[in-house]
Design a protein around this nucleic acid. Structure first.
Lengths: 182, 182
DNA sequence: TAAACCATGTAACCCGTTACATGATTAT
DNA sequence: ATAATCATGTAACGGGTTACATGGTTTA
């Protein structure tokens, strides 16, 4: 958990190019952004209300169909300033992994334990799924090289995530093979 | 955040070979274990009390010096069973990165933005620090190859963490060089 | 004797998840 | 018609951090 209310800055960032509703933000988190940050609508709506009260966001209402109200939020000058400041603020220090595979391996600690190969299989499987998912996303978004240029940051972090998964899978398979045969 | 009360299992794991006090657990998190999992004493003590109430832990009191009371906890049979079950339970699915460098890069998104090289410098710096820290730890613990065999899991995850940091640093430096000169 | 460390707890608060709750619109 | 999706909220709870609070022991 980033305790520094990062959600607020992500929202500011997502609103920095165009106005959006809370629902739009929610959809972002279900789509591409969700690979890097996500929150539920039950956290998004109250947060945006608070940000409006604090003068970081402005809103206008619009009607779709007969009565469905949408609330479009946009950045105020204070909101823009808040975002700029955060973007320039130093990064936090690196926090513990808190990854269940890692901690289980630490606690079992014995290469001959029969639970070790199972653990590796599970870990390999979930990273394969994740790797495939990210690769799919890449194809969707960045098959066109022009898109890669238009969205430098996004392409970069997605590429990096894919490489990381590939490297992790290679490491896992290597260590899996080295396990003592029972 | 692992929402599944992982702390409880980490505590069970740390108690599985010898009895310890809450303070001992806290010290573990400040030392080697802390690279992979950590919690504060204000969370540890109440959690251990609850685990005792639930019959997972047993405790005995001891006096150091004239009156300083220590409370040593150990696993009950129920506690051992709980730990075994968790160790065999399937791993959770992979969660979003929630890393501030990543999300900032996503939000800036423009290779020509002057904040990008600064961001890279910050990221490189904090990973260098972390890499050095982990390498130090390795020297401390695993210079002796026999220790590496005695603590297979620990050696493995530490090695993996070091490799990951090294690979990440290489990637960061490569991309930093590719940035457009201003 | 003073500082650092040992040792154990509680309280307030923040972030995030799950569940509760409601109603409109669109596509089949 | 009905299911899926759009749209916006609130409530309860769990896990984690910071701060509050207290006292004993060891080491320089």
């Amino acid at each position: 958990m980033s305790r520094e209310n990062t959600l607020r800055y992500v929202i500011l960032g997502l609103l920095s190019h165009k106005e959006r509703t809370g629902y739009d933000i929610k959809k972002c988190f279900q789509q591409e952004v969700g690979d890097f940050w996500s929150s539920r609508h039950s956290q998004i709506y109250p947060e945006m209300l608070k940000m409006e009260e604090q003068g970081l966001l402005a809103s206008r209402k619009a009607i779709t169909g007969q009565k469905l109200e949408k609330k479009y939020y946009s950045l105020t000058d204070a909101g823009k300033k808040e975002l700029e400041e955060w973007l320039q603020a130093p990064l936090g220090s690196i926090v513990p992994t808190r990854d269940d595979f890692t901690i289980k391996l630490y606690l079992i600690d014995d290469a001959a334990d029969p639970r070790i190969p199972i653990l590796f299989q599970q870990e390999i499987s979930r990273h394969q799924i994740h790797h495939r998912h990210l690769t799919e996303r890449w194809k969707e978004l960045f098959t066109d090289p022009e898109e890669r240029e238009r969205h430098y940051g996004h392409a970069l972090i997605l590429r990096q995530a894919i490489d990381r998964e590939a490297q992790r899978l290679a490491w896992l398979k290597k260590e899996y093979k080295k396990l003592p045969k029972k």
